[in-house]
């Protein structure tokens, strides 16, 4: 029972979709069948890309030396480092619980907030998955989106840094005022 609940919580979308299919089957079996056929058709259409995407994720994982790049990002603070951060983000693969701690280490090595922000923004480009996006949404859509996200990485990083700097200055002021009282 406990395990079933845990499964339902982690795969809640699947539970919802199965429930919707049961409902559809009950009310309109013919159209429920149509929906299932449409699902399978869509899936088979992109299956080669899906296989390739996961294969590529594995390759990126072994070839991108995360530790070496992380160290370099911590050392520099110029515009070149921001560009490197954005490039690194586009090839970075991994779930949130791997990427956030990795960037925390980068920050502790002395990286600017803008570097962290640029990596996290460019991380949304997901180069290994772009072909899947092209297959489903078309070349123009996918390339425009990827390019615009990549170009946003550095501006967003700098704005984020400005927002963080505001807080640090205020904190410093609070400390100063506190000491003068």
């Amino acid at each position: 029972m406990k395990r079933a609940l845990k499964f339902a919580a982690s795969e809640f979308l699947l539970v919802i979709v199965v429930a919707l299919y049961l409902l559809a089957l009950f009310r309109d079996p013919a159209r429920a069948g149509e929906a299932a056929v449409a699902s399978v058709r869509t899936f088979l259409g992109v299956l080669p890309i899906i296989v390739a995407v996961f294969g590529a994720l594995g390759l990126f994982g072994v070839w991108v030396d995360k530790k070496a790049v992380a160290e370099r990002l911590g050392e520099g603070s110029g515009f070149g480092t921001l560009v490197l951060a954005a490039l690194f983000g586009t090839v970075l693969v991994g779930p949130v619980y791997v990427v956030f701690p990795l960037l925390k280490v980068v920050r502790e090595h002395g990286a600017r907030w803008a570097v962290i922000g640029a990596v996290l923004t460019a991380w949304a480009v997901k180069i290994p998955m772009v072909p899947l996006e092209i297959g489903m949404l078309g070349l123009r859509f996918s390339l425009s989106r990827s390019l615009l996200v990549a170009l946003s990485a550095i501006p967003l990083g700098l704005l984020l840094e400005a927002a963080m700097r505001g807080s640090e200055r205020r904190n410093a002021q609070v400390i100063r005022e506190g000491s003068s009282v």
Partner: peptide
């Protein structure tokens, strides 16, 4: 499985 199942439902319903 869930997402593609959902795609079919959207398409039909």
């Amino acid at each position: 499985l869930a997402v593609f199942g959902l795609v079919g439902l959207i398409e039909v319903f």
